[in-house]
Design a protein around this nucleic acid. Structure first.
Length: 776
DNA sequence: CAGTGAGCGAGCTTCCGCTTGACTT
């Protein structure tokens, strides 16, 4: 039987294409890359022109055996991997594994998955583009050289197991730089003005809100401003109307989907990808790792139908979005619903919500502009030349806004002027002043990054790819360079001056400022590593480094540059720098002197030690050892003060005696605790070991005793079996193993026989094996 | 994950970019 074999990258895609091609074709997938550099060792032959030493990727043995089997049966093999640098390389690796000649192989590509496009591709194969393959090899080799030569320098000079790379190190730097910008930001206050007027219309009185963009420097300026307007009469000076319009955003790419899912649904970057993957595999959306904004012709015509029938033809507008990003490779379409007519696709709440987001964004992208009208009323007075402006904006035609509005990153205080309909007012109409306020406001530094806004920044810099944004974010957190945290704000006072009924009133109010939710903060080790790398390898840490090497990869792809030469030009100076840095550079610990101890006069320093950030008092001498203390969770060696550092030596604290035994508070490996009579009790969240008093400690000790007493529901010592009430409910413990109790079983009533049968059932079932790291 | 309360001592750690699965002997 003669058969044609088509190999794509993704199994879900294979399934779809299989439907288009008849029974003469078998479509299968490579599951991404099939060969790569082994994870241990450099695997690049430096003596032999940087020849990469590839091996079949772990866990790809089976895939390859299957491919080889199918290839043997096939008369023609089509390599249909993605149309980009990585896809071309996969096709090339497939040639070597399947014994094909790349100069003779049938390589096919298409940017939209429709029957027409796929059949056309099959009818018009080309051969492998070796220049493009070499560009990929250069990319791969450069990343390996950078990553595997830089990381060991960090092991020697900072701490073992750290990592550095072209992408992750710049990602960390972005966060570190921003944090320092925020720490160095000088907050200034100013006064903002707002006037409220009474507006009478047929006996009904409404309030007209007006502002003035003047910023008053200080309290005195605000006082004199209000003073000048005591007794003033206000008039309408003029009304101006301006039409404006808004256009919809482009359909989603991976990066914009991650940003919107974060803002609108509160999804982390990795959650978005997991949920999108499920929608993709179920056939509800197109591929979710893409950098392209464009929609296929077929998708656009089905969107037209959906919009016409749901909202009417005047809501439809044909739009073609081009991808702005220079680094985009556009091997896929934008992320869109596969069938625009489907609105409800899943019973899973997260899947359905993400799908709706994608649906709305895609549909809106083919809808008409929204037409708006902005009205500005200028208000003058009889005392001086100051003017106020009342602004309103109304939607004349909603267009795409009927379906979707993109949200913004910086959630500035809601814009008052939007959606306010201003009545037509005659010039010269008097507006009685209700009140005029000058409110103290504060300047704000740039906001901290969220996972999603970091992805946006990386994409702007051309760093990383759709398939790596989520893994990169998780790597920098796993290495301990960055933490995602929420932090509580602090109270801040602000003044409010109000002019009403010809009198000025002054008040002081308080607000909460600086609270953060799920933002990215650098750790001290992140700061130390960034400083070390910027100092010694500034070119690689440069925000533009990736963009620069990408240009060179492009030259290789276009056949204008030989790849070994390109790598050699980079590697020679880079490796020399690795050598000198290893030899000459000092160990980096971020050490900073805070001053001297107020009593003993000993020097006090902070630095990152083997177990993390710490304070050291004194230095090692013959008769004295220095004292150490760890920094608290949200403290940093960059910002801690001398006083805060000294406070850290208050632990362990002796709180007093309870039942004749000492009660101590301290912080241990598992967080803060109190210790009494040889027993440890963890402090609950919000209880500070520096503040906790004896009464609170006693209550905690008694509560722990109580829960310990209830902990053992049943015991069968003869079999070493216990039924224990744990944090997540009751469970069975035999020796060192733990066993779940089946749902619906009362733990209290378990007999020894019940336990034994649960245990033997569990032992029979296949054990969940953890996805282990490669072992040789 | 099922309950702990230190302080390595030999050998390993690490990159970026494609893609999903999680076994028989």
């Amino acid at each position: 039987m003669s058969k044609n074999l088509v190999i794509v990258e993704s199994p879900a895609k294979a399934k779809t294409i299989n439907k288009f091609l008849g029974s003469d074709f078998e479509v299968t997938s490579s599951y991404g890359h099939i060969r790569d550099l082994p994870s241990s060792g450099l695997a690049i032959d430096l003596e032999n022109n940087y020849e990469p030493i590839y091996e079949i990727s772990e866990d790809k043995d089976k895939v390859i055996k299957e491919l080889q089997k199918l290839a043997k049966k096939a008369t023609t093999i089509y390599l249909a991997t993605d149309e980009d640098r990585e896809g071309e390389a996969i096709a090339w690796h497939l040639c070597s594994v399947l014994g094909l000649d790349p100069k003779d192989a049938k390589r096919i590509t298409y940017t939209e998955i429709t029957e027409k496009a796929v059949k056309f591709a099959v009818a018009n194969p080309r051969i492998i583009n070796l220049d493009l393959v070499n560009a990929q090899q250069a990319r791969r080799v450069l990343d390996r050289l950078v990553g595997y030569e830089l990381s060991p320098v960090l092991w020697k000079k900072v701490k073992p197991s750290l990592s550095a790379g072209r992408v992750q190190s710049v990602a960390v730097r972005i966060i570190v730089d921003r944090e320092r910008e925020i720490n160095g930001f000088k907050v200034e206050s100013f006064f903002k003005l707002q006037a409220l007027f009474n507006l009478s219309d047929n006996g009904k009185t409404t309030i007209l809100k007006a502002e003035n963009n003047e910023k008053l420097k200080n309290t005195a300026a605000a006082q004199s401003y209000l003073n000048d307007l005591i007794g003033a009469k206000f008039y309408v000076k003029g009304t101006e109307k301006k039409p404006s319009k808004r256009t919809p955003a482009a359909p989603f790419t991976t990066s914009t989907l991650q940003q919107e899912a974060s803002r609108k649904l509160g999804f982390s970057v990795s959650k978005t990808m997991v949920v999108a993957q499920r929608l993709y595999e179920a056939g509800h959306i197109t591929y979710m790792r893409t950098d392209s904004n464009s929609l296929s012709e077929t998708a656009m015509s089905s969107l037209k139908q959906t919009i016409d029938s749901k909202y009417g033809n005047k809501y439809y507008r044909h739009r073609k979005f081009t991808t702005k990003n220079e680094s985009a490779q556009e091997a896929h379409e934008a992320i869109r619903p596969t069938y625009a007519e489907n609105v409800q696709v899943s019973d899973d709440r997260d899947e359905q919500r993400l799908y709706e987001l994608i649906w709305k964004r895609t549909v809106a992208s083919q809808m008409s502009d929204a037409e708006l009208e902005k009205t500005v009323i200028t208000i003058s007075n009889d005392k001086n030349a100051k003017e106020f402006y009342a602004q309103g904006e109304v939607v004349l035609f909603d267009g795409f806004l009927k379906v979707y509005t993109e949200s913004a990153d910086d959630e500035e205080e809601a814009d008052d002027s939007s959606d306010v309909l201003l009545p037509p007012l005659k010039n010269g109409l008097e507006l009685p002043l209700r009140q005029l306020t000058a409110t103290e406001r504060y300047t704000r530094p740039q906001p901290r990054y969220t996972e999603a806004s970091l992805v946006k920044k990386l994409e702007e810099l051309g760093i990383g790819r759709p398939s790596t944004y989520a893994p990169t974010i998780s790597t920098v957190q796993k290495r301990g360079y960055i933490v995602k945290e929420s932090r509580e704000g602090v109270e801040r006072k602000f003044q409010v001056l109000t002019l009403a009924a010809d009198a000025i009133k002054e008040e002081v109010k308080t607000e909460i400022t600086g609270s953060e939710k799920n933002k990215l903060f650098p750790t001290d080790i992140g700061g130390v590593v960034t400083d070390f790398l910027v100092k010694n390898f500034s070119n690689i840490l440069d925000y533009g480094f990736t963009a620069e090497v990408e240009k060179k990869f492009d030259d290789v792809a276009e056949g204008k540059q030989e790849w070994h030469k390109m790598i050699d030009d980079f590697y020679q100076p880079f490796h020399k720098n690795i050598d000198t840095t290893t030899r000459e550079s000092e160990r980096a610990s971020g050490e900073r002197a805070l001053g001297n101890h107020p009593v003993s006069g000993e020097p006090i320093i902070v630095r990152v030690g083997r177990f993390g950030p710490m304070v050291q008092v004194g230095v090692t001498s013959e008769d004295k050892k220095p004292q150490y203390a760890r920094l608290k969770a949200q403290q940093s060696i960059e910002t801690i003060t001398l006083k805060e550092a000294l406070d850290l030596f208050k632990l362990p604290r002796v709180l007093g005696e309870f039942e004749g035994k000492e009660v101590k508070a301290n912080i241990g490996r598992f967080g803060p605790y109190v210790q009494h009579d040889g027993k440890f009790v963890s402090l609950p969240k919000g209880t500070d070991p520096y503040e906790v008093n004896l009464d609170e400690a006693e209550a905690l000790i008694l509560a722990k005793r109580e829960s310990d007493a209830n902990k053992f529901i049943a015991e069968f010592p003869e079999q070493d079996i216990q039924v224990i009430l744990g944090r997540f409910g009751a469970y069975i413990k035999k020796g060192k193993e733990n066993y779940k109790i089946p749902k619906g079983t009362e733990a209290k009533h378990l007999t020894l026989e019940d336990c034994l049968s649960i245990i033997s059932e569990a032992d029979k079932a296949p054990k969940k094996t953890k996805r282990g790291k490669k072992t040789k």
